[in-house]
Amino acid sequence: MKTWDLDQFKGVFVAMYSAYDDAGEVCEERVKNLSRSYVNSGVTGLYVGGSSGEGILQTTEERKRVVEAVMQEVGRELTIIVHVGANSTEESRELAIHAEKCGAHAISAVPAIYYRLSEQSVEKHWQEIIDSTSLPFIIYNIPQTTGFNLTQSLFQKMAAQEKVIGIKMSGESVYELQQLKANSGKEFLVFNGPDEQYLGGRIMGADGGIGGTYGVMPELFCTLDKLYRANEFEKAQKLQFEINSVIKKLLSYPSLYGACKYILSLRNIETGSPRLPLLPVVQQDYASLSELNDRILRLINTYIVEVEKIY
């Protein structure tokens, strides 16, 4: 029986953003620079090609180029989970096989989107992906975008398989997250999806989290995780509230991803604009985003000192 070191998947995973050149094309150099920027932040790894990475908006070949660049740059330093979800099962299989060839540590997928699929369709879709490689598989449940809410019966059927090692739970109920953990029937990873409730997810049994806003403040989420593990719940709650205030502000812009990518540009990490229909930031928001960036950096400095007192 094949076993995986599940510890390498526990902790904070940045749902990595796209990285385009000024013409809007995938830029391997910028992909590498972005992935390199997370190496010393304290994160466990990167989740590549998901919602934050705009995988659904890229061609198969573009997605492959992104994975290749990430693996070349940080594949030996961080744990890399590649999201291979696509509208067609065949495309997902192709991406999964490619991820394995590149040396990725695990693959993950949403159900196919657009069509309202039955449980049998989703099961078949995931099974084809799982069977296409020897890599461990992580279910991605995000009903608010896919329109498919994973049932306990299908979950238990999938989780019973050796290669299915975890789930990214992006539904908003920490009770449902806890139930997934309780009903997996084996040692099983549950990743908290909603960034605003990272602490709540951890308290209810999550082994870590995968999130998009982590990308502009990975140190804060790593600090939050350390406070949780040190049983410093009051301090952890205070930090989660600070993080949520930042997230609320990020969500006030026309494009969350555009806002996050602009903040990175203020730190000399260029990733280009998000791909349409996702909107870029507009010039009138530059000043407030600069202020938000300054606020994030102050929080990082403040809480790093706070954690150093504990450890």
Rank of each mutant, 00 (worst) to 15 (best):
Gln178Asn: 14
Gly208Val: 12
Ala182Arg: 15
Gln178Phe: 05
Met204Glu: 11
Gly209Tyr: 03
Leu199Pro: 01
Gly200Pro: 07
Leu199Cys: 06
Leu189Thr: 03
Gln179Cys: 12
Phe191Lys: 02
Leu180Arg: 15
Lys181Gly: 10
Gln178Asp: 03
Asn192Lys: 10
Lys181Phe: 04
Ala182Gln: 12
Leu177Phe: 03
Lys186Thr: 05
Gln178Ile: 00
Gly185Asn: 04
Leu177Tyr: 02
Gly209His: 07
Gly201Asp: 09
Gln178Thr: 06
Met204Pro: 03
Glu187Met: 01
Lys181Arg: 13
Gly209Lys: 11
Ala182Val: 01
Glu196Tyr: 14
Leu177Pro: 07
Gly209Pro: 01
Leu177Met: 13
Leu180Lys: 14
Gly211Thr: 02
Lys181Glu: 12
Gly193Val: 00
Val190Trp: 09
Tyr198Met: 15
Val190Ser: 09
Phe188Trp: 08
Gly211Phe: 01
Gln197Pro: 08
Tyr198Leu: 13
Met204Arg: 11
Leu189Gly: 04
Gly205Met: 05
Gln179Ser: 13
Gly185Gln: 02
Ala182Glu: 12
Gly208Ser: 08
Pro194Ser: 01
Gln197Phe: 15
Gly193Phe: 01
Gly205Ser: 07
Gly209Ala: 14
Gly208Tyr: 09
Asp207Arg: 09
Gln197Val: 14
Gly201Pro: 01
Tyr198Cys: 09
Gly208Ile: 12
Asn183Ala: 06
Tyr198Gly: 02
Ile210Gly: 05
Leu199Trp: 04
Gly200His: 11
Ile203Lys: 07
Gln197Asn: 15
Gly185Met: 06
Ile210Arg: 03
Tyr198Arg: 01
Asp207Ala: 14
